[in-house]
Nucleic acid binder design. Sequence first.
DNA 1: TGTATCGGATACATACGTGTATCGTAGTTT
DNA 2: AAACTACGATACACGTATGTATCCGATACA
Lengths: 212, 212
Amino acid sequence: MSDTPAQAATRSRENTRARLMDAAFAVFAEVGLDGASVEAICERAGFTRGAFYSNFDSKDELFLALAASVSEHKLTTITERVRALKDDAGRPAGPVEVVQWLVDLSLDSRQGVLLTSEIRTRAMRDERIAAAYQAWLADMVQRVAAIVDDLVATYGMRLRMPASAFAQLMLELWESTSVNALIQRLDDAATGELVRTRTLVLAAAVVEGFGQ
Amino acid sequence: MSDTPAQAATRSRENTRARLMDAAFAVFAEVGLDGASVEAICERAGFTRGAFYSNFDSKDELFLALAASVSEHKLTTITERVRALKDDAGRPAGPVEVVQWLVDLSLDSRQGVLLTSEIRTRAMRDERIAAAYQAWLADMVQRVAAIVDDLVATYGMRLRMPASAFAQLMLELWESTSVNALIQRLDDAATGELVRTRTLVLAAAVVEGFGQ
DNA sequence: TGTATCGGATACATACGTGTATCGTAGTTT
DNA sequence: AAACTACGATACACGTATGTATCCGATACA
């Protein structure tokens, strides 16, 4: 099956877009949005700026596209895992295993944490990014809340606060813990342990009937 | 009492240093560290760059000095308030009032939140700033933990986790909530309410014998 | 009142990043 | 096979930030 020219061209174009975005992901994580020059991004991607300006209007537009892509990827991932949860095969054994499972779900790479921080920082100052961030966060909260609701029903427990508030608290806690772990130069294992412990504390507090 | 020339000169010098740092505080909050030009800082302070380079070696050095100053200011503030707490006059009536009091203690201005975020972002990438940040955080944690210990003893309650871990959790929660409130464009009242509510939830979870 | 000193202003050299306009070429179409 | 199209490279013009070297004026002291 051969492509029409438009398709072939598009596919190639999409490919260089993707390479540029991958490079931008790395460079933004390294030096931040303002610290990253278009030149540096292109160099890492193996292009010159000609390619860049042929694909994006500006660095800001690339950043927006990248943020959207990362957000969507996270949402997709979580959706898949929720579906896996529904299949009895992968269902965790008990509440504590659920925490483990949720933490795995939320942990991000070093670069991911850095980029998310960049997005949040930007959102504090830029109305447009704030809107996008809030929309994404609401989406995440909703999905995590759905998981929580489902688990609570399954194990016959009760929440001491609305599931969505609990979910948002969890998400913020995970993020904030990741950031601090990064500042403390903890390795992945220690970071995971810290997040797990804290999540258990919070769960014990908010979920009536959760272990001890 | 008149100054020696050196003293007078120093005093004036300290004054322009202070003005530059005040300006930098505002500009960094507005556009971030990388987004702020030395020129912009000087302009806001009512100087030219000549004054800047006469007082600081680089923008980074100014940022470091500013971060240290802000940190120290926060520590001083909290110390004062702890002392006030010791005087029976200002002592809160009960656990819930204590929460109110603690929240007041932790709330920061919009600009303060933005600058703290900038510091934290920087700490993730820069070893030197990370060390300073961790030292400061440890200090804060220690003081808050002392308050917590004192209060717990006073009201005859018990903690379900080490006071320092609890204190750190609190500090992170306050910070993270402030950031999110800022992104959501909440006003000060709503932000305070949110922080208060969340603090109560956490306190109820961790402090055995805390209200309901 | 003359003079030395210090802090801040001015002027300059330079590096860097951006965006655009143009060019060369590989792959496609007829 | 010739022409066309699209993508990315190259070259250029411009603006902006930096840091330094020099200058000027006010204040302190003799």
